[in-house]
Simulated assay, not measured.
Amino acid sequence: MNDLGAGFGYLMKGQRWVAQHGRWFGFGLLPGLITLVVYAGALVGLGYGADDFVAWATPFADDWSSPWIGLLRTTLTAFVFVFGLFLAVITFTAVTLLVGQPFYESLSEEVERSEGGEVHESGLPLWRELWISARDSVRILVRVALFGIVLFACGFIPVVGQTVVPALGFCVSGYFLTQELTGVALQRRGMVLKDRLPLLRRRRLLVLGFGVPLVLSFLVPLVAVFLMPGAVAGATLLANDLVDADEGPAPGPDGAATTEQWAA
C-alpha cells in the first residue's frame, strides 16, 4: 500500500515543480487549452445528441408503455454520456500529448536538467517522434476501448454496475493515463510501448497512486488543462526513478536509442 502514497507523491512533486518554474507552467498550458476547446465542443454535442442516438438504437421500445420506455432510454442516455466522458478523459491526454509533443519534450528535459540527472534525448527527428507517439497512443486507446466496452456492459448489472464498475473504471483510466504520461520521458530513453508496459506492471499500485487521483481531478472542468504541465513533470520523475531501479534499455554510443529498440 505504500506504493499508492508514493505514486500520489510523484503527482504532487510534479505540481510543485511547475509552481516553482512559472515559465514552464505557462509553456505547458498551451497544448491543453487547444485540446480543451475541441473536446468541450464534442461533449456538448454528445450531451445534445445522446438521447436521439439512444432512441435510434432502441426502436424495439417504441411501443413500450410509460414509465418503462422513459426509464430505459434515460438510463441508456446516461450510460452513453458517461462512456463518452470516460473516453474523453483517456483520449484527452493522448491528443494533448500528441499536439504538444515539442512542448512536453522540452518540459520533461528541463525537469531532468533541474534535478541534476542525465538529460535523455531520442536522437530522432520530430516527425519520427510524433509517429511513434501516435502509434503507441492508438495501441493504448484500443486497450482502453476494450476495457470500456466490458465496463459499459457490466454497468447494467444491478448494484455492481453502480458501485464496483465505476471504481474499476477510475482504476483503468488512471492506469492507462499514467502509461500515456510516462511515455514522454520513457520514449526519449528509447522505450516504446512494449518496453514500457512490463516496467509499469511491476509497480501497479505506484501507477494507480499517480493516475487515479489525476483522473478524478480531470473530471472537474478546466482542471485537466492546469494540471497537465505538472502531470508531465511528475510522470518524468516517476519514469526516471522506475528505470533507475530497474534494467532499462541500453543507449547507443551517442546517447540515443539503438535501431532495434525503436523497431515496431
Rank of each mutant, 00 (worst) to 15 (best):
87 L>H: 06
16 R>A: 13
205 L>G: 11
151 L>V: 02
195 D>G: 08
25 F>L: 13
211 G>H: 04
242 L>G: 09
254 D>K: 06
43 L>Q: 11
41 G>E: 08
46 L>Q: 09
258 T>S: 05
41 G>C: 09
110 E>K: 15
100 G>K: 00
156 F>N: 06
115 E>S: 13
153 A>R: 08
157 I>E: 06
141 L>D: 15
207 V>M: 01
189 R>W: 05
148 G>W: 06
89 V>P: 00
64 W>C: 03
13 K>G: 07
10 Y>E: 06
88 A>P: 05
4 L>K: 07
47 G>T: 12
72 L>T: 10
15 Q>M: 12
254 D>G: 07
13 K>A: 11
91 T>E: 15
91 T>Y: 11
190 G>Q: 10
32 G>H: 05
99 V>N: 07
229 P>R: 01
51 D>K: 03
87 L>V: 02
33 L>A: 07
127 W>I: 03
67 P>M: 06
148 G>N: 09
22 G>L: 14
208 L>I: 06
71 L>E: 05
84 G>T: 11
34 I>S: 09
244 D>C: 01
35 T>R: 05
38 V>D: 10
129 E>H: 07
82 V>R: 06
174 G>W: 00
75 T>I: 12
49 G>T: 08
187 Q>A: 14
50 A>W: 00
164 V>T: 08
242 L>I: 10
221 P>R: 03
138 V>T: 15
36 L>E: 13
230 G>N: 01
243 V>A: 04
255 G>T: 10
185 A>F: 03
177 L>C: 04
79 F>I: 01
34 I>G: 07
204 R>N: 09
132 I>H: 14
209 G>E: 04
77 T>P: 02
190 G>H: 01
59 P>I: 01
73 R>P: 00
230 G>Y: 00
145 A>I: 09
33 L>M: 12
161 G>I: 05
249 P>D: 06
200 L>F: 02
200 L>A: 05
33 L>E: 07
93 T>I: 12
7 G>M: 05
3 D>V: 14
6 A>Y: 00
131 W>H: 11
140 I>F: 09
5 G>K: 09
6 A>D: 11
224 A>Q: 12
251 P>L: 02
208 L>W: 05
190 G>M: 11
5 G>F: 12
219 L>G: 09
64 W>L: 01
83 F>P: 00
255 G>R: 07
187 Q>C: 04
254 D>W: 06
52 D>I: 00
123 G>K: 08
161 G>E: 07
199 L>V: 15
7 G>C: 03
154 C>S: 00
97 L>A: 02
229 P>V: 01
182 T>F: 04
187 Q>D: 13
211 G>L: 10
244 D>N: 11
172 V>C: 06
80 V>M: 00
53 F>G: 03
92 F>T: 04
